[in-house]
């Protein structure tokens, strides 16, 4: 029924969209892999980052791609501080309390944004937002192609950090064996905060990549949370490569099921996949079997 004229662009679009999903999921999977918590504040932090990118454009005239350079360290710091001074102390190391604290944070952030900036939907109009690159029958919007490239670069950088730096090694050590890591002199609270910071920094980049083609309002980030969870599960909780490949895969699946089942019912494709993976390969498609 559907010809390649529509199929190929749909796959390519899925990959572009999936890349941004992957970046959001990267943040989530890092945090999950190390802290073993489900971070309910992820969506709200993404919204906050989108607001930051918006105002960087509005007030300082910064292109979101330039703004990302400044926002990434700022959001790293923010994430570090949140974990070190709020989530960690308030949660007393209990999973259920972390859950509530991140939930509380989400409510606070989302509504503080609502209070400060009102509910208006805000968009930015970049001169090149409507430029496209033609690939066969497909028109790929320039901002989405940029996003794709940046995400791949960030994922590689993150992988290198985890693999080769001392901090990366410490993070992996804490993820694998917290007690052992503590005994060998690793400051676990610090590593937790660093991980949370890295996860939040990913959101800052994702926000800057999204803004040229999306919009921001106080609830904008929530739209990406469930899909990010799906990717985290699919790629194996805690796996950087898993999140990247999972994100691209989910992007394509979403695109295909949207095409064949319609946008509303199409969302089911993702959750069915999610359920199947959980049932039959809970460590993720790429994860090691535990």
């Amino acid at each position: 029924m559907l010809s390649s004229v529509i199929l190929i662009p749909a796959v390519l679009n899925g990959l572009m969209t999936g890349a941004v999903y992957a970046l959001i999921a990267l943040g989530l999977t890092l945090i999950y892999g190390v802290l073993h918590i489900i971070n309910f504040a992820h969506g709200a932090l993404l919204t906050a980052a989108m607001f930051a990118a918006f105002f960087a454009h509005q007030w300082l005239g910064l292109d979101p791609y330039i703004a990302a350079i400044g926002l990434t360290p700022i959001f790293f710091g923010l994430g570090y501080g949140l974990q070190r001074f709020i989530i960690g102390p308030a949660a007393h190391g209990e999973d259920r309390n972390i859950l509530l604290v991140t939930l509380g944070l989400a409510v606070v952030i989302e509504n503080a944004l609502l209070y400060a900036f009102r509910a208006d939907t805000r968009t930015i109009n970049l001169p090149y937002a409507f430029n496209v690159i033609e690939v066969g029958s497909a028109f790929l919007a320039v901002p989405r192609v940029i996003a794709f490239v940046v995400v791949i670069a960030v994922a590689i950088a993150l992988w290198l950090i985890m693999r080769w730096t001392d901090t990366g090694k410490a993070i992996r050590a804490v993820a694998k064996e917290k007690l052992g890591a503590e005994l060998s002199g690793i400051d676990v609270a610090h590593i937790y905060a660093v991980t949370f910071g890295l996860g939040t920094a990913c959101l800052a980049i994702a926000a800057c990549l999204l803004l040229p083609t999306y919009y921001v309002n106080p609830t904008a980030g929530n739209a990406f949370v469930l899909i990010a969870f799906t990717i985290v599960v699919l790629g194996g909780m805690g796996s950087v490569t898993g999140a990247l490949i999972g994100g691209l895969f989910v992007g394509v699946v979403e695109s295909m099921s949207g095409l064949y089942l319609g946008e509303s019912l199409g969302q089911i494709g993702i959750f069915v996949m999610f359920i199947l993976v959980l049932l039959f390969r809970p460590s993720g498609l790429l994860g090691e079997r535990t």
Binding site: A10, N13, T17, Y214, N222, A223, I227, S255, G258, G266
Partner: peptide
């Protein structure tokens, strides 16, 4: 919300 309208 719908995140992406490319398919539509």
């Amino acid at each position: 919300p719908t995140r992406d309208f490319n398919n539509v």
